[in-house]
Each structure stands twice: as structure tokens, then as C-alpha cells.
């Protein structure tokens, strides 16, 4: 695996070679600094720790300052680990979008937008109970029965009900890299990507 940390910038649409309009997400990916190299001998597994996006020195804890100083870099906002990196890198190396080629398929991990407290129709795709006619009311978005009566006399664990929705870690697989703009480290990935504008995403290949 190889990958980068990026920031979702927004969406636009571009034209493919055959004139089709392709909706895509613009991601500011990298440059990321290698802040730690974990190997099988030292940590029991091999991985690369990457850091992305500048942060003020005075807002960094001393522990993190030391960690970034080891890699001879400035403090960074977002740190993430990538298991079994495809290429070998040393502490302090800088990775950018040249990792990817146009036409690659990548996985994008982000934190979905928070939706607040939602009912079962939106949260779990229930159909609701009942109709609008035949004397019914108040039941159109209701969850229906949540279990039997005296047996088991309780609601089974994991019963899908209303509650907080969104804000989860979501991974979208096999998204196509449509265009790369190396001047500003921009990736244009076809389709939508989880999260709000300005949120961090991990791009894995």
C-alpha cells in the first residue's frame, strides 16, 4: 500500500477525452513528511507515519515538537500511519502527488458530515409505516415494531433505531484519479468523497 494525507477542497466537473462531463472532487494531497518509520524488528509491523498541513509552533505540545524535530520538520496538524508502504522511505522524506498516476484507482477515507439526531428512515433506510390515507396519521416515518412481547421481554441488542448519524469514518473504494495538477499538489478524483470541505482525507493506493 501507499498513500497520502490530503484535504478536501471542493467539487467541480471536468471533461473526459470523449466529451463526457465528469463530476470530481478536488483534494489537496501532500506534501507529506515521513515522521516515523516503523519496521518489523522495532515495532512488530512495518508502516510509515506521514504528517501533513502546517501548524503553529506555539500550539504544539513539547512532546510533539520533539517528535517532529526528529524528522527535521516543522509541526504538522494531521498525522496518519500507512501500513506496509509500497516504497522504501527514510525519516524526513517528503512525498507528494507524484505517487499517483492519472487513471489510478484509489481508496479515500474521510469522516462523514455529521447529520445530528436522525430517524430510522434517513438513518437506516426504513420505509416507514403506513400510508397517508385510510384514516392513518403520524406513522409515515415511524420505525414500526421493535420486537415481540413477553418473549423475549426486552429489545434485542443492535436493534436499528433513531440516533446520531454521520461523523463516522467512511472508506470509499476504487475511485478513479481523473486528473493531477502537480503545481499545487491537487488530485481530481471522480465522484464525491466523504466529509466536509476542508476536512482531512486519507488517499490509499
Amino acid at each position: 500500500m501507499s498513500g497520502l494525507i490530503g484535504k478536501k477542497i471542493g467539487m467541480t466537473s471536468i471533461y473526459s477525452a470523449d466529451g463526457k462531463n465528469v463530476a470530481c472532487t478536488v483534494i489537496h494531497a501532500g506534501p507529506c513528511v515521513v515522521t516515523q518509520v516503523k519496521t518489523k524488528d522495532s515495532d512488530g509491523y512495518s508502516s510509515l507515519q506521514l504528517a501533513f498541513d502546517e501548524k503553529k509552533e506555539k500550539r504544539t505540545t513539547s512532546a510533539l515538537k520533539g517528535h517532529f524535530a526528529k524528522a527535521k520538520t516543522t509541526p504538522k496538524r494531521k498525522v496518519a500511519e500507512f501500513r506496509d508502504f509500497a516504497t522504501e522511505h527514510n525519516l524526513g522524506d517528503v512525498l507528494d502527488v507524484s505517487l499517483f498516476v492519472e487513471g489510478d484507482f484509489v481508496d479515500v477515507i474521510g469522516t462523514s458530515k455529521g447529520k445530528g439526531f436522525q430517524g430510522v428512515v434517513k438513518r437506516h433506510g426504513f420505509g416507514g409505516v403506513g400510508k397517508q390515507t385510510h384514516g392513518q396519521h403520524d406513522r409515515q416515518r415511524a420505525p414500526g415494531s421493535i420486537g415481540a412481547s413477553s418473549f423475549p421481554s426486552r429489545v434485542l441488542k443492535g436493534m436499528r433505531m433513531a440516533g446520531r448519524m454521520g461523523g463516522d469514518r467512511v472508506k470509499l473504494q476504487n475511485l478513479k484519479v481523473v486528473k493531477i495538477v502537480p503545481e499545487q499538489n491537487l488530485l481530481l478524483i471522480s465522484g464525491a468523497v466523504p466529509g466536509a470541505k476542508g476536512s482531512y482525507v486519507l488517499i490509499e493506493k
Binding site: 467541480t12 471536468i14 478536488v26 489537496h28 495538477v181 499545487q184 491537487l186 481530481l188
Partner: peptide
């Protein structure tokens, strides 16, 4: 939003 504009400029 600036970077979206930048990318669009590049691709026009």
C-alpha cells in the same frame, strides 16, 4: 475555493 479555481484554470 481558490484551489478549485486554480485547478479549473489549469484544465480549461
Amino acid at each position: 475555493m481558490d484551489l478549485v479555481k486554480f485547478a479549473e484554470e489549469k484544465l480549461i
